[in-house]
């Protein structure tokens, strides 16, 4: 099992943070374009499923998977979106994404008065904490290479 990468978007679609661990393929477009495409896709998925759902939804979109990876999605009521791509072996990690929000984002960005909340997160402390949190996850494994 492994973690490929992680995106954090604010409510307006700005990518606040991106990091990757085991990513073998790039999207073939600039990072800026990739963030926009990712956010656009998530936005459309939300709209898509809210129309498709046969009954009223609570949490809404949770995850999707392709033949090669699984995308996990978590959104707070304030509109912050945490997106983690893992391999297919990883089950439901809603708790983990919530922890990234509550133990790392809230602690090291929201409570840091010098951190602006709607632009790319510059805090080295945040990056380090996030990196060690993800590396410490039971389903994180740095594959050879």
């Amino acid at each position: 099992m492994t973690v490929h990468n992680l995106y954090i978007f604010d409510r307006n679609g700005a990518c606040l943070h991106y990091s990757e661990w085991n990513r073998k393929k790039q999207a073939g477009i600039s990072k800026e374009e990739e963030y926009k495409l990712m956010y656009g896709m998530l936005f459309s998925i939300r709209s898509f499923i809210s129309k498709m759902s046969p009954v009223d939804m609570k949490d809404g979109f949770l995850s999707f998977q392709t033949s090669k990876y699984k995308l996990h999605y978590y959104e707070t009521p304030t509109g912050l979106k945490v997106v983690m791509n893992t391999d297919l072996g990883v089950g439901n990690i809603r708790d983990v994404l919530h922890q990234i929000y509550s133990y790392i984002y809230v602690e090291y960005v929201v409570k840091n008065p010098l951190c602006s909340m709607n632009e790319t997160i510059q805090s080295e402390l945040f990056r380090n904490k996030l990196d060690s949190f993800v590396r410490g996850l039971p389903f994180f494994s740095a594959r050879a290479g």
């Binding site: 998925i45 759902s53 046969p54 609570k58």
Partner: peptide, 10 residues
């Protein structure tokens, strides 16, 4: 592409 998409209702 997307083979399976999961929400809380379907």
């Amino acid at each position: 592409g997307i083979e399976m998409l999961e929400t809380d209702t379907f």
